[in-house]
Amino acid sequence: MKHLLKADKIKLKRSSLPIIILLVPFLILAYELVNLTYRGDFVEKQAEMFQADSMWTYLLYDNSLLFGLGFPLAATLAASIIANVEHQANGWKQTLSLPISRVRVYLSKFSWLFISLFFSTTIFMLGMFLLGNMLGFEGRTPWKYLIGDSYSMLVVILPIMSVQFWLSMTVKNQAFSILIGAVSSMMGLFLAAAQTTRWFPLAYPSQASTVILQYEGLGYNQDLSAYLVISFCLGIILLVLGSIQFAKREVK
């Protein structure tokens, strides 16, 4: 497996994967920077209205919707880039006629998808920390919430990762998987708006923040642990099903 991971690493050299990894955190952080400086007065009033205990809490709440829309898109594109390396190279017939099990080939590439997205959320977390300090947010840095916000997303996105990855690996035309990914991340926003449909896994990314708006103002997200458990189990199941299907496919 170690050899496989190394081989897949070299195949990703000079690809546009790093851009995708950086794009979503940078765009959101840039938006927040503008939001917190040019609209500073308005934002402070709103934070008061929402009874935010500090600007950190407000920031965590405010970016959750954008992150919830943007991160599934990043996962879609990253999965597509990783799979497309092989499609574009005409590489399946070569890679799959080497002495390695197909399930491993699948899991190795999935590992790189996970690692890329791990970097993406880590950059997002560090970016929030820098932004807060740069703008002189009061109070101690709430590391627990910053970590929670970033890495919950990584877990909550697992089912979407598994499905998008499988689509990109098995359907050569990447326009197809990217369309599905784009539509489903937007659907997630709408599903999250209603009381019942918000339990649908597509809706989790936009609700995966540690801080949400409740009747009494901003507070801790009570449902997060349920989202995490459901997403983790579902994601693993979908990944296993995808890898089994991939191993049985005929290579054209």
């Binding site: 050899h3 070299i10 195949k11 050299k13 690809s15 390396v85 190279a89 017939k93 070569q94 006629s97």
Partner: peptide, 22 residues
């Protein structure tokens, strides 16, 4: 098999290196 496999974003040596690592 048929049309050759090549990873266009890699050099010739890196192409072989990918197979070598595997």
């Amino acid at each position: 098999v048929e049309s050759p496999t090549y990873y266009g974003n890699l050099t010739g040596r890196e192409n072989l290196e990918a197979v070598r690592r595997l």
